[in-house]
Structure formats: structure tokens, C-alpha cells
Write a protein that binds this DNA or RNA. Structure first.
Lengths: 335, 335
DNA sequence: CTGATACGCGAAAACGTTTACGTAATTAAA
DNA sequence: TTTAATTACGTAAACGTTTTCGCGTATCAG
């Protein structure tokens, strides 16, 4: 399509060898400043850019990382990608995107296909459908990998997460202090550490306040909007909880709809609180009390860690980076 | 890191030449079924995957496309990416992401850096900050490129857009029929065809109903949340419009906040309607009448077009694909 | 003036594929 | 039986880099 300006062309026009051109372009100490300048100016003039495939093949570096996540169209993940992309730009890396749609087979297929030198490293937030740590135990030996938010524990890999347990504890206390004693839990990510930590924080906060939590007050997430809605409606009707603690954003719409359909007033009849990165939380009717994770920063941190590893920089002691979530109290919990 | 299983290794173990192995892997007619099967089974056994860099270098095909967009963390674009990624998977392509942050220099830098064979094609939704069609006129000659939503016109390239003019006209009529006569316009994307078409639809609808639109009722978007909020507040106070037609999602939060701060009731004092792909539109207070673009389908269509081009399939006649947006009437316009 | 020491550069191999071309063996056509 | 065509495979070049190694020249100490 174009006129193919490569290193050979530069060498010919300057009457020097391609080795010299290559070294000059890479600012090698072997080349005199005079020659470097000749090369650089001609390269700029001809709009030369190195062929990535050739470069990758020879050097075994791709300057590319892969982001493997459940879904792009999600506030949390799109913000994470934004953070990752920003850091990648700074380091001169390219970013490949793969969506697993919570399918662990797709997850394996993608990550496996990345082991042949397509990328230098992987950033991933794993599928919630299953917890298959043997697979990842092998994977982390084969390629630099950083987990964020949805992680596998006990692996020799960097993990960037949030204070799920603490913030869930704190949020539950907020509900209790708001006068709630029958707090239902909308349970997501139950196979993953994040989901378990949130649930544990909820349970422990109840226990700390002498509240027993009947199992019937827990609704588990299914990948079926209508089903979730029905479950919540049944929960509300059968057990009349005075609060809903939603551990994932996906429960917000069904929760609000369920209340509306049953004629329950938020926050008077039932208070609602949810993990969420919705920018419109404050515009909801009523405005929603949220636990928002620093999605953008998580992406940035995870990317920074990966690039440090790829550049052989020392990772400051810790393999686990834990960022703080923010509890924003709004009308849905009576604030 | 691993034990490097390549074509040479396969050839050695099977006592055949690397050419035969390569052809067998690519299912060439030159190779007998018997040999192919030997190769295939060993390849699977050793978990062989071709080295992409070597393959790209030799064949000049990368099976990779780039998506260049203003920002990932946006409902419209994240849905588009989702659609693109889905189609890319079907065709066996990889997807690179680049964010321009509405910066036309970044846009040029990215697209230029993609011309050296890093990708086979580009999908882009261009920056709103400027309209620089000379640059793109050159670019489309150098690499297969498909525009979606935010396009450059009069170029020899496929464009996937929506019926911006028609739907804006229709939405404006909806406001008029709801009793509005002083409809303010919150103007976004003013440099781009989409923004112009939306504004034209609005103006023509007013004209068709004999309404003159004073210029003071138009507020232009700036990349400054606080500034937009102030502008809208001043507009509401100074000219007391009975409706706000927002041409982009970014105006929703300031519009709602402005009304709240001024004590204006939606929809009684002022009706609001906005282009938006917010999933929570129906949960806002009050629920928001929206024009939602089929973002996911736009991504899918754009990707399909690009892959058709890359596979030398005939594009069915048309270079312009226009999808329909959906006007969903809710409480914010009195429905 | 001789030997060592940088310095600046070039020759050539290598990375793992794909592919044009050649060739031997087999089959079909004459 | 001879010739042409087909089948199945191998040889080797090529893609555009990076990098090892070596060589000549200039510089400098002795």
C-alpha cells in the first residue's frame, strides 16, 4: 500500500550499513553523534517507523500487553481499561482487549493463545463462573501476569484489589446504624475472593452487632435479569427485609424495579446500598448509597506493576496492592 | 520462559521438512491427508501455536485491528467495543485499543503509528475537537479504515452512523407535542457531522412547527463539568426554557443538577430529553427520556465491514450504513 | 616508534514463518 | 512404451529487524 521505508532504505540513502542505522535508531553508544543525527533526521524526513513484526521476532519483545476481562461494557471494567491504557501510553505499550463473558473456557483459550509471544504480559480480572486455580498456577509461570480486582490467591503473581472486607463491614454498620436489622444480601462473585470478602464483611458486621443473619435473606446472582428480579421480589415479599445490601452493580436495576413494582418506598420501607461505579448514582430515584471502587486507579496500579516487572524494576516489597473503596451515603439509606 | 515449540521442532520429530509442516498446518492442497494428520496431532500434543511475529513478518497480515476512540469509559464506546470484539473473535482477529481523549494530535500519532504493519485495519470514531479531513483523506489511502458514529464525510471509506437528523427531528416534535415551545439545545459534537445533523434536526423540527429558535437557547459543551453546570443554570435562569434537548450524554448530570439547584421541577417546569446510552435512564429521578443509539450493533456492523474489506469480500453496494436510534419516552418529558 | 585502547562502523547470522520453485515418484493419457 | 500431468514433498530465499563479532583507524602512553 505504501512505499515501504525500512532500515535498508535508510542505509542506502546514507551510504552506511543497516547495522549502523539500527544502532543509531536505538541510540547505541557505538555510534557517533554525527551519524546518529544523520540517521534521525532522514528517518523523520521519510517518516520511518520500525516494522513491529520484525522487531518482535528478533528481540522477543512486543511492547504489547493483553487485558483479559469478563466484559468491556461495564462501568468498573471500562474505567479500569482507561487506567491501563493511560499507563500503557506512558510506557509506550500497546493494549489488546479480550472479553471472556464470564466463560472460563474462553478465558483459558485466550490466555493460552497469548503465550506464543503475542504479548509481553497479561492483565486480568478473572471470570466469576468458576475458580480454577491449577490453571493459573501454571499460567503465571509462563508469562508475567497481574491480577486486578478479581484475583486468584496463593499464586506467585501481583494482585491489585480493594478493601472489600473492610468496606462491606463498614457499609453494613452504616445500615445497622440507620436502624436496619433485617439486612438482605444480594450475593455476586461468590466463587471469587472479592465476593467472599464482601460477604464475610457483611456477616461479621452483623455478628459484631449481635444480629443473626438468616440464610433466606441471601439472594445469589444469576446471569438472567428477569430471574434476578423475581428472586428479589420474592425475597422482599416473603421475608420483608428492611435493607438490601447489593454486592454487585448488576443488582441495582432489578432491586429498584422490584421495590417499585411492590410499592415499597426507598428508603422508608427498605434501604438500599450497593457496590457500584455508576456515575449516575446520585441521580437515581432516590439517589443511591454506593460503595465505589477506584476502578481507574486499579487499572493504573495494575498496569504500573506489570510494566515494572517487564522492565525488571524491583516491585516495592509487596505483591498485594490494596486500594480503598469509598462509601458514599445518599438518600437510599436515608441520608 | 517456555520450551519453544516451533515449526522446526515439529519437522524434526516427524522427520519431514519445515515447509511441509507449514503447509500442513495451513491445510495446503499440496500435502497428503496422512501427513497433515501426523502434523496436526503432534502440534496439538505439543501445544504448538505459530509465532505471530514471524507469521506477520512473512505474510504481512497481523490478524489484528485497532480501535481508535476518544474514551473507553463511556457507555456508547464501551458498548461499541463490545460489539467490535465479538465480531473480531468470530473472524479470529485481535483488537487493540487506543484512546485519543478528544485530542487530534494523539489521534494522528496513533493512526500514523499503525501504518507500519502493526494492524491490518482501523476502526475509529474521531475526535470532536477539530475537523481535519485532509489528514484522513490521506490516511484512508494507506490502510483499510472504517468510521463509526463520529465520521469524516466525503472520503472513500465505509461509515457506520445513525439516523441523527431524523431522530433529533422526531424527539423535538415529541417535546413540541408535549407542550414545549421554548426548547433549549445543549450542543455537543458541533464540529462533527453527527452533532450538526442532530442540531439540524432540532432546528428543522422547530421550523416545521413555526417556532423560532433564539440563539440564546443554545449552550455549547465544554470539557469542564463545572462550567457546563454554570452555563445551564444561567440559561435556565435567564431565558426560562420549558425544555432541554441534550445532544450528548455528558449534559445529563449537569442538567439534572442545575434543575435541582434552582428548584425547578422536571418535567413540570422544564422537560428534559437526551441522547444517551445510560442503562439507568429509567431509574433517574425522574426517569429520563432518551435517544439511545444502537452502540453495540454499530460496533458489530463496523467490524463486519472492516473484516469484509480485509477478506476482499464485496461490500454490498453501500459505503454508508445507517442504523436507527430509539426514542424512549419517560417521565422527564411527562410520559 | 611501538604497543595498547578506544572508537566507529560493517558483515553476517539469527528470529520463525511463508512461499516460489524444483524434483522425484506415481498416475494418466497418447 | 513414451510422454505429459499430477501428487507429495524438499530447498532455499525472503520478510525487517537486532546483535555478536571483528576490523580498521585514531589516540595515547611508554
Amino acid at each position: 500500500m505504501a512505499e515501504a521505508v525500512n532500515i535498508k532504505r535508510l542505509a542506502q540513502e546514507l551510504n552506511i550499513s543497516i547495522a549502523t542505522v539500527s544502532k543509531a535508531l536505538n541510540d547505541s553508544y557505538e555510534i557517533s553523534l554525527k551519524t546518529k543525527n544523520r540517521v534521525w533526521t532522514l528517518a523523520k524526513e521519510l517518516n520511518y517507523t520500525p516494522n513491529p513484526a520484525a522487531s518482535n521476532l528478533r528481540s522477543n519483545k512486543t511492547k504489547t500487553v493483553a487485558v483479559v476481562i469478563p466484559c468491556v461494557a461495564n462501568n468498573f471494567f471500562s474505567l479500569s481499561i482507561m487506567g491501563i491504557e493511560e499507563i500503557a501510553r506512558q510506557y509506550g505499550y500497546h493494549v489488546l482487549i479480550y472479553q471472556t463473558h464470564e466463560n472460563i473456557e474462553a478465558e483459558k483459550a485466550f490466555t493460552n493463545s497469548l503465550l506464543n509471544g503475542r504479548v509481553d504480559g497479561i492483565l486480568t480480572s478473572v471470570s466469576s463462573s468458576e475458580y480454577n486455580s491449577e490453571y493459573y498456577a501454571n499460567l503465571v509461570k509462563k508469562i508475567p501476569l497481574v491480577f486486578f480486582d478479581r484475583v486468584y490467591e496463593n499464586l506467585d503473581a501481583v494482585k491489585v484489589t480493594t478493601d472489600d472486607y473492610d468496606i462491606a463491614f463498614q457499609a453494613t454498620e452504616h445500615l445497622i446504624e440507620s436502624g436496619c436489622s433485617k439486612i438482605a444480601y444480594l450475593f455476586g462473585l461468590e466463587n471469587l475472593p472479592a465476593g467472599k470478602a464482601r460477604f464475610a464483611g457483611y456477616l461479621d458486621a452483623l455478628k459484631a452487632h449481635g444480629i443473626v443473619a438468616p440464610e433466606q435473606l441471601v439472594v445469589k446472582y444469576h446471569d438472567d435479569e428477569e430471574f434476578n428480579l423475581q428472586q428479589i421480589k420474592e425475597l422482599l415479599e416473603a421475608y420483608k427485609p428492611d435493607a438490601l445490601f447489593s454486592s454487585i452493580e448488576e443488582f441495582i436495576i432489578p432491586a429498584y424495579c422490584a421495590c417499585k413494582e411492590l410499592g415499597l418506598q426507598i428508603p422508608d420501607d427498605v434501604k438500599i446500598l450497593s457496590f457500584s461505579n455508576l456515575s449516575t448514582a446520585k441521580l437515581l430515584s432516590p439517589s443511591l448509597t454506593t460503595i465505589s471502587q477506584p476502578a481507574f486507579e486499579i487499572g493504573r496500579e495494575a498496569a504500573k506493576c506489570l510494566f515494572k516487572i517487564l522492565n525488571n524494576k524491583q516491585l516495592d516489597d509487596e505483591q498485594n496492592i490494596i486500594l480503598k473503596s469509598v462509601l458514599t451515603k445518599r438518600e437510599s439509606t436515608g441520608c
